[in-house]
Design a protein around this nucleic acid. Structure first.
Lengths: 157, 157
DNA sequence: TTTAGTGCAAAAGTTTTGCATGGTC
DNA sequence: GACCATGCAAAACTTTTGCACTAAA
């Protein structure tokens, strides 16, 4: 298993120590219950993103007993607390992702292998604000999702 | 009822003549059946966007008998043909919209009144391409949704 | 001990599918 | 006549909720 990136103390692709995750939850203002830690831990093992159903299935096969409703509730709480991102790749199903940074960023998704990369230093804010103002709007937020082919998938094709 | 905009022959907010819609469908390569025309017509009366369920409900109350599955299938066909846009405002439910232009554009949504405005002349393509390339990706598409408050809702608040 | 989270099962809701029937080319 | 679209109902799925119970502050 490969460490993908280590920003802000969150490591993708490895089993992060539960105590650290618990600390983050407390800092974010939510109770670090065993189940929430388990969900966040499972999400930390995922390099890209996963649905609630997928996470639940994985935890079930590794022997952990946790209710599906609890997984949904945990993800909602973690999402509200800003610890995980939600993204929908056009489809209806919600995907969750443990992002390396809590700051504003966007996602770049490979249509071949579904790999997700975070794009920091978003520089579309200016255009968004200006375009909105031209329509009489005051822009409050924006979400951008970029699809493409990563280098590996391009080579394979 | 007010005409909002009239680009590319599509008029929001008024009952567009069915024959024109039928012509557009034929041009787009799908069969202009009565139900599809009816769905597109209903979507043309909508200034913003609507879900499949909403459209079906409206058609039912105006006395039109059309199956819910048919509405879903019609919208899927129209969407594939590029005649309607799909957008999800973060939520899971898919919203459909008859856009004024078939060209690349983005949506500006008012969080107060759910009004949708199209942002043409997207100028984020350059940044997207460059940012993707920096990660080894070849960007193929991107979708941007901007949330904000329109002038009226700002005044009301 | 008071509050908040969990598990289970049921419910709610959206979307899809199978299949017989009807329309369109 | 061949093919495609429709209607209806059932099914598949995701997500939410009620409620009794348990764990955490």
């Amino acid at each position: 298993m490969i460490i993908v990136r280590t920003i802000a103390g969150i490591v993708h692709g490895v089993r992060t120590r539960p105590s650290e995750l618990a600390k983050q939850m407390t800092a974010a203002g939510i109770r670090p219950t065993a189940q929430r830690v388990r969900v966040l831990e499972e999400l930390a093992r995922e390099n890209n993103d996963a649905t609630a159903q997928e996470l639940h299935r994985r935890m079930a096969t590794t022997g952990d007993k946790i209710g599906l409703a609890t997984v949904y509730r945990a993800l909602a709480a973690l999402s509200d607390a800003g610890l995980v991102d939600t993204l929908t790749h056009g489809h209806a199903e919600t995907c969750y992702r443990l992002c390396a940074t809590g700051h504003h960023h966007h996602h770049l998704v490979c249509t071949g292998c579904h790999r997700v990369v975070e794009l920091t230093d978003c520089s579309v804010g200016e255009w968004v604000a200006k375009a909105a103002r031209a329509e009489g709007f005051e822009a409050t937020s924006h979400s951008l999702e970029v699809s493409g082919l990563c280098a590996l998938c391009r080579r394979a094709a």
